[in-house]
């Protein structure tokens, strides 16, 4: 599978990675060679094989409905880049 620079641009946008135009060729080459390795999967016969999303074949353990979280807003927000009045801030979003 070979990716074009346009494919790279699209996937970079999906992942919100701001790539320089000059980087696109290099990434297209590298990602294509990774996908070449991955394409090996196509040869495997997986008829009647159920997908395995998890190494353990277990059901979820459920939690009791107790609101007992320790919430230290001050500590959580000490590492935040822009906070005012307890609110995280980002550049203005227009809906």
């Amino acid at each position: 599978m070979s990716l074009t620079t346009d494919d790279v641009r699209k996937v970079a946008h999906l992942a919100r990675l701001g790539l320089d135009e000059t980087e696109l060729d290099g990434y297209a080459r590298e990602l294509s060679s990774i996908l070449d390795v991955v394409d090996h999967l196509g040869q495997a016969d997986t008829a009647d094989i159920a997908p395995m999303s998890h190494p353990l074949d277990l059901g979820a353990r459920l939690r009791e409905d107790k609101p007992d979280a320790a919430i230290d807003r001050e500590a959580f927000q000490r590492v935040a880049p822009d906070v005012a009045e307890g609110v995280y801030r980002v550049p203005k979003v227009i809906e």
Binding site: L41, G42, A44, I49, A50, M52
Partner: peptide, 11 residues
């Protein structure tokens, strides 16, 4: 890719 890999993972 993804579903196929989940199947080969089981193998």
């Amino acid at each position: 890719y993804y579903v196929k890999a989940q199947k080969t993972r089981r193998l």
